[in-house]
C-alpha cells in the first residue's frame, strides 16, 4: 500500500526514524470527560512499523489515546490523521470541516484494536468472529473469508477451536481470537489496550507470545498500553510515560524503562516492579 501525500503540506517527521511521513499523527489533541481533562494537548507521531509502548498510572490517559486513535471517541480539540487522512475532518478548499460518519468509518479501517476485555461476539464462533469483518466490512466472498479467517486463527494457535463459541474458550484463547479478528482487516496500525490485564496469570504468557511474534514479523505500527515492563523492553522502539493527561517522558526503552530521568517515572516503575 502506498502512503498518501499529506495534503496540508505540513508533513510530520517521525522522531524515531527521522524519515517518512508518520502513519499516525495527533496534533494538539485534548479530551475531557465531564470536567475531567483526560488528555491535554497531546502531540504524537508514530512512524510506519514503529512499536510504541505506553505506560503510566491508570487515569493518565493512555487508554484514551488508543480510543482516540481508532475513533471510538472524538477529541474536543486537535486533529488526528491516519496515513495522511484526517479521522474526523474532511478538507474543503483548504479548510477543515467535520467529516461524515462514512468518512470516519473508512479511515478507521486502517486501524485495529485489541481490548482488555476481548469483546468477542458471544453469539458467534471463533471462526465467525474473524470472518464477519472480512465479509461485511471489505466484502470478501464467504468461502474466501472463511479460508482467510481459518488461516489467521491457525496463526494464533487456534486451528482446533474454529467452531467454538467464546464461552467455550479460555481467556487466553479468547484474547488470541480477538487478536486474529483485529488482524483480519490488515490494519496498518494496531492498538493493544492492556491485553493481558484481564487474564489469569497462567494465561498471560501465551498472549504475550502472540503479540511479540506479531511485533517481530509484521511491519504494522503498534501502540501498546501495558504494565508488563520486560515485554515493553523487548518489543518497543519507543516508550511514552503518561501522567495526568500528558506525556512526561519519552525515549527508547533502554532509557525510559532502565534509566528514567523523571522522578514520577522512577516512582511509577518502582511501584510496578515491587508488586
Amino acid at each position: 500500500m502506498q502512503s498518501r501525500i499529506d495534503p496540508s503540506g505540513s508533513q510530520t517527521l517521525s522522531p524515531a526514524t527521522g524519515m517518512g511521513p508518520a502513519l499516525l499523527s495527533m496534533r494538539n489533541v485534548s479530551k475531557s470527560y465531564g470536567d475531567r481533562k483526560i488528555l491535554d494537548g497531546i502531540d504524537l507521531d508514530v512512524a510506519p512499523g514503529e512499536k510504541v509502548a505506553l505506560i503510566g498510572p491508570s487515569g493518565s490517559g493512555k487508554t484514551t489515546i488508543l480510543r482516540l486513535a481508532i475513533g471510538l471517541v472524538e477529541p474536543e480539540e486537535g486533529t488526528i490523521r491516519i496515513d495522511g487522512r484526517y479521522l474526523w475532518h474532511e478538507e474543503d478548499g483548504g479548510r477543515l470541516r467535520r467529516a461524515s460518519n462514512k468518512h470516519t468509518r473508512q479511515v478507521r479501517r486502517s486501524v485495529g484494536i485489541v481490548f482488555q476485555q476481548f469483546n468477542l461476539f458471544p453469539h458467534m464462533s471463533a471462526l465467525e468472529n474473524v470472518r464477519e469483518p472480512l465479509v461485511h466490512t471489505i466484502g470478501l466472498p464467504r468461502p474466501e473469508a472463511e479460508k482467510r479467517a481459518a488461516g489467521l486463527l491457525a496463526k494464533v494457535g487456534l486451528a482446533d477451536h474454529l467452531t467454538k463459541r467464546p464461552a467455550q474458550l479460555s481467556g487466553g484463547q479468547q484474547q488470541r481470537v480477538a487478536i486474529a479478528r483485529s488482524m483480519a482487516l490488515q490494519p496498518r496500525v494496531m492498538l493493544f489496550d492492556e491485553v493481558t490485564s484481564a487474564l489469569d496469570p497462567e494465561l498471560v504468557g501465551e498472549v504475550l507470545k502472540v503479540v511479540r511474534d506479531l511485533a517481530h514479523e509484521t511491519d504494522m505500527s503498534m501502540l501498546i498500553v501495558t504494565h508488563e515492563i520486560s515485554f515493553a523492553i523487548d518489543i518497543a522502539d519507543r516508550v511514552l510515560m503518561f501522567d495526568t493527561g500528558k506525556i512526561i517522558e519519552e525515549g527508547p526503552p533502554s532509557q525510559v524503562l532502565k534509566a528514567p530521568q523523571e522522578p514520577r517515572t522512577r516512582q511509577f516503575l518502582r511501584a510496578i516492579l515491587e508488586r
Binding site: 471510538l72 469483546n119 461476539f121 471489505i138
Partner: peptide, 18 residues
C-alpha cells in the same frame, strides 16, 4: 448489552445496520 460489543463492532468497520 455491554458497551464493549458496540465498540468492537465500530472498530471492525461494521455498518450501523449490521
Amino acid at each position: 448489552v455491554p458497551a464493549g460489543q458496540r465498540e468492537a463492532a465500530l472498530a471492525l468497520g461494521f455498518s450501523p445496520q449490521y
